[in-house]
């Protein structure tokens, strides 16, 4: 016998039953990202943590050049937009002069691991009390899918149309492992947001990074391996599967450096 439901949709969707909605620290602006792109989820997780830790009035974010160049349109916090690769220097300037604020950069792999390598390494090595959120999708998304410092061997991009030949184009850069070796970094981790379980782990990592910034012990670095379905030329669901099969073996998820 088919039981009739004891409760209607209207009765469920009451304010007291609300268990999840987009945080008000995300603006109402429609995200400019492609369908299925991880940026939106990562933005939201950072904003959820800032909201839950009641840090809106104490946060200054730095947006990079790349797909997330317009992050300040979506995040309801004070932000500065940096030149390509220079976000860690901009954040250094902010944090040194506003040491009681929570300061973070949000950077892609081209921004952080190619043009901004010097700024990244030295901010990490100085142990700046900032947090870097590093979104690695192995490609230059905004400019149309060119080869990035993180592009996997044999991976096809607009500027490696026959696959990345490491003999002529160099090797993908595991900058996160490199950064973990520096004494100035306090917490270094690599996460993803392609499944609900991974989103939860990423959020925990963000929470830790923010808490550690308050301790003034050095730089916290959260890499999020993410998809670029447009650049990879796949559907979002296929891209997530491809990421599991190809990106994660080379960029394994998990903590790389944790406080002793």
């Amino acid at each position: 016998m088919l039981e009739t439901l004891p409760i209607t949709k209207e009765e469920i969707c009451k304010p007291e039953n609300l268990v999840y909605s987009r945080t008000h620290l995300m603006t109402d602006a429609a995200l400019s990202y492609c369908p299925g792109c991880g940026h939106g989820t990562i933005h939201r997780m950072i904003m959820e943590v800032i909201d839950e830790m009641n840090l809106q009035a104490d946060t200054i974010g730095v947006a990079p050049v790349g797909c997330s160049v317009l992050a300040y349109e979506f995040l309801n916090i004070d932000m500065q937009q940096a030149a390509h690769g220079r976000a860690p220097a901009v954040a250094t300037g902010i944090k040194r002069l506003m040491p009681n604020k929570f300061v973070f950069t949000y950077q892609g792999d081209g921004d952080l691991a190619a043009i901004g390598t010097a700024e990244t390494i030295h901010a990490c090595n100085r142990g700046e009390n900032i947090t870097i959120f590093y979104v690695n999708n192995g490609i230059y998304g905004m400019t149309g899918g060119q080869m990035a410092p993180t592009t996997l061997p044999q991976m096809k991009t607009a500027t490696s149309p026959f696959g990345r030949n490491v003999e002529t184009m160099g090797y993908p850069l595991k900058i996160t492992e490199l950064i973990a070796m520096l004494p100035g970094t306090y917490f270094v981790t690599r996460q993803s947001v392609h499944t609900a379980a991974n989103v939860r782990k990423t959020k925990k990592a963000i929470q830790k990074a923010i808490e550690y910034q308050k301790l003034n012990k050095g730089l916290s670095f959260v890499e999020i391996v993410s998809n670029c379905n447009s650049g990879w030329k796949m559907t979002p669901v296929e891209a997530n599967k491809w990421m599991e099969e190809n990106m994660f073996p080379f960029y394994p998820l998990g903590d790389i450096k944790v406080p002793k």
């Binding site: 009765e11 039953n17 609300l18 268990v19 999840y20 995300m26 609900a196």
Partner: peptide, 26 residues
């Protein structure tokens, strides 16, 4: 369908934050 348990997994992975989830105790 009516099988939703309100686990919020869909909302967590939605890049656009388009999903709001409610959960009622029966």
């Amino acid at each position: 369908n009516e099988d939703c348990t309100g686990c919020i997994n869909c909302a967590l992975v939605c890049p656009d934050g388009a999903i709001t989830v409610y959960r009622a105790r029966l």
